[in-house]
Design a protein around this nucleic acid. Structure first.
Lengths: 211, 211, 211, 211
DNA sequence: GGGTAACCGAGACGGTACGTCATGTCTTCGC
DNA sequence: GCGAAGACATGACGTACCGTCTCGGTTACCC
């Protein structure tokens, strides 16, 4: 680590985030300690306290970069159903990467720690939901475009899209966070199908009165 | 609290479970400590270590009684869809009771702690899933009975019922554990409807080849 | 180090006092740290905080035993002047023992730390002054007895004896605490002589009015 | 505080010495920290390290000016005994001034810190002893001049004068550094008298063989 | 009069020690 | 003979200073 000056050292920041990530994967959330991170990153404790409020804050920082990518919607030219299936499988895979473990850990800690809950919501979940809304809307737009030659997807307001996202992501998260085994492709595919079905029904009922 | 005796004191057990529960609600999971429980229950630390392996074990003990009741299927004479809706609302309400907080806390801790994950699975989730399977099967049996005058529900094997349970409970748990607001009735009702729909489709496709 | 119990371990107490003493001699007052004592004594920090308020309190505890002996008046059958000389040399020697270093350290710290000053005064200096008063009185009693066949020493009140003690001990302490070399026998002997002289003059002037 | 420049800023030096002095009086030796001095003087830590080796070095710097004055011998036309008494009272008063606190603090720290001991000796005590020797010699010269019309004082070699200084200053320093109350005028006056007495005796015995 | 060099405020950094808290084990003693 | 009380080693907490360093920005001198 370069010796630095009165400006924050980026190399130290990365060393810390890596150390925290490693410890989390190796030893679990309780095994992540400020002292442990400091020792593994070859950094003074005070340096951690200077830049982060807590170990939760450090883990949140690792999410910012990694999870954004890991949970991104990478839309291709496949059918809507296939796109949703792919996205669900991508999320499922994400949970087995280090960054996925970090998210699980923070979601876990947030269950009983209001401060963590708030930080996670405002530092990650809020924006992630925005990206998910955009992703789902894009898929639905294409889907309904095929069916009715009109982009009705954009007519769906946030509330409706949020409901669909809950239906879409719920079973996967449930299996991941509560289930005793990882989610299986079959359930993911079924979910994707159901959501499209439901979306179609909603869209149709939206249009009938105006048709 | 009875003072001593050569037999395990039941009053001490209850005092400990209550103390743990209270501390969890008041101070969150991290605020629950062996020393804190002992102090609040007016009990020696050693007494806790004698009967429970850890604070997780104590919390699991509180679940055993409370959650079984709070998550029980109380089937009445309503329609299948309404029964599912009621059950989902019951679960939703449960998460706002103390016992619900305990479950959330343990689910949270289990995310990064294999020992807790295992204990929770074997000490609670496994049996709860059994009860849920039985409940859903009962609802479906009645439902399909109405439709086709035949009890096909019992033909659904565990794997299929598990899939339906994931679809049924997923959105609710997702909203509870991950969402920033509690689940709304609308999403619960929609879920119930979808599951019945899906179950019907499965049942039908099961019967067609055989019809 | 016996392995604990609900009663204070005497062996731990001794190990701590020895460790503190050793560290003081080896590394000086600043080199004595709670962590250092704990490490050297093979004891937990918490155990130190349980029984002592600070490192000053620990050092004070070592004085209680050692300094009492090292500064004791051991009167024999020699002349008064010789007795005083011997006592001064004993004190001088004491300052080169470990316990003497502890006293110097505490006197040093007391110069700018009111809490230490108070603790040292009430925990050691007060009683030591009592012992010194008794010792000097005993010597004077014998001295004047030889000269005038009357025990006038006991007539000297505390205030006068304190003044004589300041004269007796002042030069020695001054050489020890301020001087750049240790006190030499010559100055000690001269002091002893002067004090006896002064005491005699006081005694005489006391008696004249009454004679 | 002049803003910058390639020349050492005298205003900074004074601000630092004042800050150190103030902190010592307000918070004791342990309360004097490099960071505290820097903050109070509105100066960067590096500036302190540039010009002084340690906080002890800073405090020594404050002594250089203040203590030289506070402990100076201001001889007038009074009798020898009165001159000594005045000097002792002057010293006694000095210990209650800020500079006196600094000297006490450094003497205190020197008890267990060889580096401080050495610095204090070479940076202050050595020269002060010179001044004290000169002062005492001057008083004695006048004294013996009155008595015998001959300036025998200058014949006293350093060793003898040092002994007399120890007798003169010892009780005062002892009361100040060790005693629980400040030295009283009576003991100071008695000391002054004794020292003159002793000096006279020495002078006489010096002359007899040669007479 | 433009470059250079030292001074200076600011503060990041790796450390050490602080005093506190909870852990899990062990021992004593009262009921 | 159970259980309260609590001593103990362990280890992490978050804070305060240490002494070293690097950064910009400012003068004062010298070429």
């Amino acid at each position: 680590m370069s010796r630095t000056g009165p400006k924050r050292s980026e190399s130290i920041r990365l060393a810390v985030l890596n150390a925290a990530d490693d410890l989390l994967v190796e030893r679990g959330f309780d095994g992540v300690t400020i002292e442990g991170i400091a020792a593994r990153a070859g950094v003074a404790k005070q340096t951690l306290y200077r830049w982060w409020k807590s170990k939760v804050d450090i883990l949140l920082d690792t999410l910012a970069g990694d999870a954004r990518d890991g949970l991104a919607w990478q839309l291709g030219s496949a059918s809507a159903e296939e796109e949703l299936q792919r996205q669900l499988r991508r999320i499922n895979a994400f949970f087995h990467e280090p960054a996925g473990h970090v998210l699980r850990a923070l979601l876990g800690h947030a269950q009983t720690n209001p401060a963590t809950a708030r930080a996670l919501r405002e530092g990650f979940l809020r924006e992630q939901r925005e990206r998910d809304r955009a992703g789902l809307r894009a898929v639905l737009a294409r889907h309904t475009a095929c069916q009715t030659a009109r982009q009705t997807g954009r007519h769906l307001d946030d509330h409706v899209v949020d409901g669909l996202l809950d239906l879409l992501l719920g079973p996967l998260y449930y299996r991941t966070l509560v289930g005793d085994r990882a989610a299986e492709p079959a359930i993911l595919d079924a979910t994707a199908h159901l959501v499209l079905d439901t979306a179609a029904r909603i869209t149709r009922s939206d249009q009938e009165p105006s048709g």
